[in-house]
């Protein structure tokens, strides 16, 4: 393929590498050495992820965690523009300001839907297994070029502005990747089996409604632990839903699957373990309380969990009042 996922990772690593260098040079950041080292090591995982042996990479990851976990990250000076200056600038470019930003989703969708089978000289244009991710990265690059043409500004300035955003996100940036690691270790350690065993031990198997509640609530809770409904679904469905709801109570499998997965999603809305949906956005939006997005979602999630229990009981199992 011409544009591979690894190419996109290398570009991301280059951005992080420049952020690292700019941090080292930022005398206003009181923790510039540890902050710069943090972004530098993170850059290495993107630049050389494929060639560094995994156990060495494990050591790098632990170093990254220690730097960020014990308060090694600080804020610097980004030469930000004051509000009045930005208002003045907005009056110059007006709605043209939206063009680069809207190009990103547009190019991502075009790449996935229109150019997904495009070949040049028999070689696929986009990595066939990772079209969306490659298109997103490509969108970022094209949008940056357009942004620089519109503003007549430099790539260094753009990366320095992204350093302002990355420093604000701080440790939360790598939390999703660490949580995915924990999920893998949980799975290897048999956490899922232990939980589905607890559920099947305590639930009265003859009572349809009780099993429905146990499965839906179990999906939500296990998703909250794993941070990911995809990890919870096979374990809970194999342990609880297949033997008790499908074979014993005759549930419709299509309906059960759809509603079971959605029950897991209500858990995703309520857990810091789904950091890429809940914690990173809080950091991206400069919220001082990193749990505020979760707090905003909890009422909706609980109502939807109750709704799913009703749908499961009445639609998948033909329950009656």
């Amino acid at each position: 393929m011409l544009l591979s996922l690894n190419l996109i990772y290398v570009l991301t690593g280059l951005v992080l590498g420049v952020i690292s260098v700019l941090t080292f040079m930022d005398g206003r950041n009181k923790k510039r050495w540890s902050t710069g080292l943090f972004w530098g090591l993170y850059a290495i995982t993107f630049l050389f992820g494929q060639s560094i042996p995994p156990d060495i990479m494990g050591v790098v990851v632990i170093l990254i965690v220690i730097l960020a976990g014990f308060g090694g990250l600080g804020l610097g000076d980004y030469g930000e523009r004051k509000k009045e200056e930005r208002v003045r600038q907005a009056a110059l470019l007006k709605n043209k300001l939206f063009i680069p930003v809207l190009l990103i989703p547009l190019i991502t969708v075009l790449g996935t839907v229109v150019f997904n089978k495009t070949t040049l000289g028999g070689i696929p244009l986009l990595d066939p297994k990772n079209q969306t991710l490659v298109s997103l990265g490509l969108g970022g690059v094209i949008a940056l070029i357009v942004a620089m043409i519109l503003t007549r500004d430099t790539p260094q300035r753009a990366v320095n502005e992204s350093r302002r955003l990355m420093d604000a996100i701080g440790w939360a940036a790598i939390l999703p990747q660490m949580l995915a690691t924990l999920g893998a270790l949980f799975a290897a350690g048999g956490v899922g089996l232990a939980i589905s065993k607890i559920v099947t031990d305590i639930v009265p198997a003859q009572n349809t409604l009780a099993v429905v509640v146990a499965y839906c609530v179990g999906m939500a809770l296990f998703t909250m632990i794993m941070g990911n409904a995809f990890a919870a679904f096979p374990v809970m469905t194999l342990g609880v839903a297949v033997p008790l709801l499908i074979h014993m109570h005759g549930a419709n499998a299509n309906t059960l699957a759809a509603i079971g997965m959605f029950s897991g999603y209500t858990g995703t809305l309520m857990t810091p373990m789904a950091a890429n949906f809940n914690i990173v956005p809080a950091a991206l939006l400069d919220l001082p309380d990193k749990y505020q997005v979760i707090k905003a979602q909890i009422p909706t999630a609980l109502i939807l969990l109750a709704a799913n229990i009703c749908f499961m009981y009445f639609l998948a199992l033909g329950g009656r009042w």
Binding site: V60, R86, V101, A143, L165, A173, T181
Partner: peptide, 29 residues
């Protein structure tokens, strides 16, 4: 395991690549 999962899941952090655009356009209002 830490090393492997961290590298495999790098896709979760690809939003980093679009921050230069967002940051630059924010500078211009």
């Amino acid at each position: 395991q830490f090393g492997t999962s961290f590298v495999v899941n790098r896709y979760m952090s690809l939003f980093i690549l679009i921050l230069p655009v967002i940051g630059l356009m924010e500078r211009y209002g």
